[in-house]
Structures are given as C-alpha cells and as structure tokens.
Simulated assay, not measured.
Amino acid sequence: MEISQNAALLVVDVQKGFEEAGFWGVRNNPGADDNIAALIDVWQGSGRPVVFVRHDSSKPDSPLRAGYAGNGFKEYVEERRGKGSGPELFVTKSVNSAFYGTPDLDGWLKAAGISQVVVAGIQTNMCVETTARMGGNLGYDVLLAYDATYTFGLEGPFGWRLSADEVGQASAVSLHGGGFARVVTTKEVVDAAR
C-alpha cells in the first residue's frame, strides 16, 4: 500500500455525543478511538493534511445537535486540532456526507492537488460510509481504516436487527466489494504513511 505525501486524513464526526450509550446502544471496535488518535498523530507528524468534520444535527433530540455538549469533538481530537505542521480544514455538515458540508471539501482537496483520502471516524455505516462512497464517486483513491471507525446495532425493515459488528462488517463489505474504497487496518495505513 502506498500513501501519498499529500494524502488527506478525513476525521469524521468524532464527537462527544456518540458516548451517550443510552441513546445509541452497544458499539463495536473498542480500540477505534486509540486508532483514530494514532492516525491523526502520524498525519500531523508528517505534515499531511487533516480534515476535521463535525456533524451539526438538526434533530432536536440528537446528542449531536448544535449548542449541546455532545456536539463538540471528543477531547483527544480537540487537543490535536491545530497542532499539525500540514494544512488543516474544519468542515461542518448536517447530512451524512462530508462532501456536502461547509466549506466545500471537494473544492479544497482539488485546489490542493489531493487525490487520495483516508477516512476514519463515526459511524462506520452512516457518515463514514457515505463520505467514503461519495469520495469514490468523485474519483478519489479512498482508504477506509476500518478499525478506526465504529458503529452501533441497528434495526431495519421486516424486524431485521443487526449487531454493531454485523452493521460495521456489512458496511465494509459493501464499500470494499463495491469498489468505493479499499478497506484496510490502521496499522497498514500507519506503516505505509511512515
């Protein structure tokens, strides 16, 4: 695996509100936060660009709603913002894709000549997957660091219910198998980026 010198790390929705287990339920990938922190550290240490994405939910009961404490980044992310030697962008959004946020992520990446992105964050099957899919559609070489993401169990149609592991794996299979992104581990990305 090759990580280009200007590959951007997209840190999607790593917000305090996702720690409200009573709202979300049981999560998977317990080491995801450590892996996200490791990716940020490697990117900042190598001068590569980092994009921090925050979801500003328009739902009044959401733990991610603007003005609520859960809207803020988790402490380990907030502590790292502004600390890298490379370019940094802060994007806010109210939908699943970071490419539909403010400022325009696609425009920023293209203006910087960036063609490769590594995606990490929360939730695997929601904003992470949607951002990765759209990145693939826009022609970026997308890598998804699967163990630097997590999600929660989910109920769908016909009473079908999937655990957090099942939801995350289905998302990874769909992205990888569908050619939207290469699903890899944090270690693979970190080793290639060093």
Rank of each mutant, 00 (worst) to 15 (best):
P157A: 15
R54H: 14
L138V: 08
V12W: 07
V190I: 11
T131K: 13
T186C: 03
A98Q: 13
Y150T: 13
G72M: 08
G72C: 04
P30M: 12
K187C: 04
A98V: 08
A120R: 02
A37N: 08
G67H: 05
I40Q: 03
N6I: 14
T92M: 01
A112W: 11
E166Q: 12
A181V: 00
A120W: 00
S58A: 15
P103N: 02
L39Y: 03
Q169T: 12
V142H: 05
N96S: 14
R194E: 15
S115M: 09
S94V: 07
V95Y: 11
G139M: 12
V167Q: 04
G113I: 08
A69V: 09
A145G: 05
V95D: 13
G107Q: 14
L64M: 06
C127Y: 02
K110E: 10
K16M: 13
V50K: 06
F99H: 03
A120P: 02
A193E: 12
P157S: 14
P63I: 11
A181C: 05
F152I: 07
D41T: 05
V117I: 15
A132H: 00
R80Y: 06
F180D: 12
G72V: 13
K16A: 15
A66F: 13
R81I: 14
D165C: 02
G70I: 05
A181G: 08
I114Y: 12
N29P: 07
R194H: 13
V95R: 15
I3M: 10
P103F: 12
G86N: 01
G82R: 04
V183S: 00
A145T: 06
H176G: 10
S57F: 02
V77L: 07
P157H: 13
A8H: 10
F18R: 03
Q44A: 10
R161N: 09
G70C: 09
G107Y: 14
T102K: 11
D34V: 14
V167P: 07
G47Q: 07
G17Q: 03
E79H: 10
L144A: 08
D33C: 11
A37V: 11
L89P: 02
V50W: 03
F90A: 12
N29Q: 09
Q5P: 14
A8K: 08
E129M: 04
G67D: 01
E129I: 06
M1N: 11
N71T: 08
A21E: 12
A170R: 01
C127N: 12
M126N: 15
C127I: 01
G156L: 15
T130C: 12
V142F: 01
Y146Q: 14
W24V: 01
G70R: 02
N35H: 09
F99C: 11
L144N: 05
F90D: 11
T149S: 07
I36F: 00
E188K: 04
N71V: 00
D33M: 08
G139V: 07
P157K: 14
